[in-house]
């Protein structure tokens, strides 16, 4: 009897220690980024583009990377959202045989688990074959490929929870399948759809491995889809170990901004889902 109680106690302590370790590592990450990043955030850093010499230049800021990241992630997320919503709606049993749907889901799961470096390498070789050069456009393409499985799978999970009765009443009123899917199901699944899009956006804006070969490097804000660009994650990756402390500061500032963006996305996702859940039919 006693032994069992001791075992219970030992494991409870181990559990609490594990949880403390998990939360502690989050606190360490946030405080490290704050400690190094906050002093680096100055008006100059946020409002100026990098100086002409990327790796050694002392002047300038990271505005080009902030804008670059946004210009990469937003169009990619929009594209992935359009593809994702269509596929997720199609995977429901109204449209397709469950077996086909499950095999598409399986492929999507594999694509979700595919390391982002593979998308990067794949797009880069295609880029060379087509004789193209590094540009904003290729970054958007790689990020779109990366985000499609995430957004689709997430939406699919919530859309499949839409009650069947709701669809049946739409059908009985004479709506076609497509109208039901895009007008009724979409509205009912809106909280999940938004959470999925924001999840994809968060992954896309923070991913460096897929775009580091594709976007090139630039010290100004990209003027067209063909021009090379900088992005926050690739800037961190390129500058974190530079010997010049001022250049390293840019990496810390970029990490700070990136973490803030991810934090905002995470909080926004929570608030929006909570708000919108009020309006759906239970």
């Amino acid at each position: 009897m006693n032994k069992r109680v001791i075992e219970e106690g030992v494991f409870e302590i181990l559990m609490i220690l594990s949880l403390v370790f998990v939360l502690g590592s989050l606190i360490i990450i946030i405080s490290l980024v704050l400690y190094h990043g906050a002093p680096a955030i100055t008006v100059e850093m946020l409002t100026q583009t990098s100086s002409s010499r990327l790796y050694t230049g002392r002047g300038g800021g990271i505005l080009n990377a902030i804008v670059g990241s946004i210009l990469l992630a937003i169009p990619a997320t929009l594209l992935a959202f359009m593809v994702g919503l269509t596929v997720a709606l199609f995977l429901q049993s109204d449209f397709t045989h469950p077996q086909l749907a499950n095999s598409v889901r399986f492929i999507l799961d594999i694509l979700w688990g595919t390391p982002s470096i593979i998308y990067g390498v794949f797009c880069m070789v295609i880029m060379f074959i087509l004789g193209s050069t590094t540009s904003l456009l290729w970054g958007i393409i790689a990020l779109t490929l990366l985000e499609i499985p995430i957004i689709t799978r997430y939406m699919d999970e919530t859309i499949s929870m839409v009650p069947h009765g709701l669809k049946e009443s739409a059908y009985s009123l004479g709506l076609t399948k497509v109208e039901t899917a895009f007008k009724i199901v979409r509205k009912q699944a809106l909280p999940g759809i938004i959470a999925g899009v924001l999840l994809g956006l968060g992954r896309g804006i923070g991913d460096a491995a897929s775009i580091v070969f594709l976007i090139g490097e630039s010290n100004s804000i990209p003027s067209s889809f063909d021009s090379p660009t900088s992005a926050l994650p690739t800037m961190i990756f390129n500058l974190y170990s530079q010997p010049d402390p001022y250049v390293r500061q840019k990496a810390y500032a970029a990490a700070f901004i990136l973490l803030i963006i991810v934090l905002i996305i995470s909080v926004a996702s929570r608030i929006l889902t909570k708000r919108l859940t009020k309006h759906i039919i239970k």
Partner: peptide, 22 residues
Amino acid sequence: VRPFIDLLAGVPSVVYGLCAFL
């Protein structure tokens, strides 16, 4: 706890790398 776990999952890998480096 749940939001914190989600946040930890959302931290970009390059930030993990930077923190590990520091």
